[in-house]
Design a binder for these strands. Structure first.
Lengths: 202, 202
DNA sequence: GTCTATATAAGGATAGAC
DNA sequence: GTCTATCCTTATATAGAC
């Protein structure tokens, strides 16, 4: 399903594509797409500037692949989050917990995914926007069903769904590994916040 | 108090500094600091590339001035928001409404302020971080006093304060002028969301 | 698939005239 | 305070050897 190797192992030097992907995520998250040079990336990946172009057509295409894989991962995650239950309260709770924990744990990657969209070409952006829309739909559906079932109470389910996602996305902006809280602590607290936002009676 | 003219009039061509500031905000918000050239800015301001340097030492210093003025404006705003009442519920409600409305109305400027911090020099960033800390303190204080007064209920006042601010900041990311909601609609709904997050009994 | 070398372009900033 | 002209550096991407 994925065309790129999953970036998660660490010890023995991984293949070139993976090293490039990791270096690019780190650099894009720190200095932004335009603030990052192809030399930054290739050097951090332990190769010459030219080697990057063996694996990617351009810097933009590299960003797109990172973004595409990252978004598909999140979409799959939120779908799994709601698959374990039929209760909207439980579903929203798990979804927010998973979403927030993920954005805290991989905050570097999440920053690239959420804040470098403007650097994508029109065509590539459209593809990403489509995936983001699917993610939105999952959240909106849970809240809509909760309202219909009378377990959620909100004057605007659509805006509340947006706000819940928004709250989770922004975790990628402020979360720091050296910070006050662990990803789990944030995830658990945000679960409560989201249920309150949705007007859960529980 | 402000060293720059307030950027809000429109009809007769404003002075050079103001035109540069407006052009820079627009460009930084759209393409980011590193994606914007000094030519982009000066041309949009109706002058030559060299003219920019009569008014600003560098591109970075221009960003810093925009950021500084913008942050001070927000700090003053939130302090005024809480100044009109002693009731934490009312204070948090007004604060969130004002903060969110502002981030929706001037979402272009707010985007620059919140998402281009990494482009600042170490010294300039420190100055901005100090102002942001003051803003944080205002929100934290309101929630702390609400908890102490028994009108708010949250297992972690600090994290809840962060989340409320976070929710408001992220409005700058997703809000669109052509979108579904007006700034007022978002502000009013978010007031409710924030009070629920704080566990307001009202 | 990786390297060295380089083409080609663009960007930040300055000099000096008006 | 604004302009034209330009210096100097850096950047993306490619050519061609190994």
């Amino acid at each position: 399903m994925l065309t790129m190797p999953v970036v998660s192992e660490s010890s023995p030097s991984p293949d070139a594509r993976t090293r490039l992907a990791r270096a690019a995520v780190e650099a894009f998250a720190t200095r932004g797409f335009h603030g990052t040079t192809t030399r930054d990336i290739s050097t951090a990946a332990g190769m010459s500037p030219a080697a990057l172009y063996v694996h990617h057509r351009s810097k933009e295409e590299l960003l797109f692949e990172l973004s595409r894989v990252g978004h598909l991962r999140v979409l799959e995650m939120v779908r799994e989050s709601v698959a374990g239950s039929d209760d909207p309260v439980e579903q929203l709770g798990i979804l927010v917990e998973d979403f927030v924990r993920d954005h805290a744990v991989v905050h570097t990657g999440a920053r690239v995914i959420n804040y470098e969209l403007a650097a994508l070409s029109e065509e590539h952006l459209a593809e990403i926007v489509a995936i983001r829309h699917e993610i939105d739909l999952v959240v909106r559906d849970v809240i809509d069903r909760g309202v219909a079932a009378g377990v959620f109470h909100t004057p605007d389910a659509h805006m509340t769904a947006l706000a819940v996602l928004s709250l989770g996305i922004d975790v990628a902006r402020w979360f720091r590994d050296e910070g006050r809280w662990t990803p789990d602590q944030v995830a658990v607290h945000y679960r409560l916040l989201a249920l309150r936002m949705a007007g859960s009676v529980a």
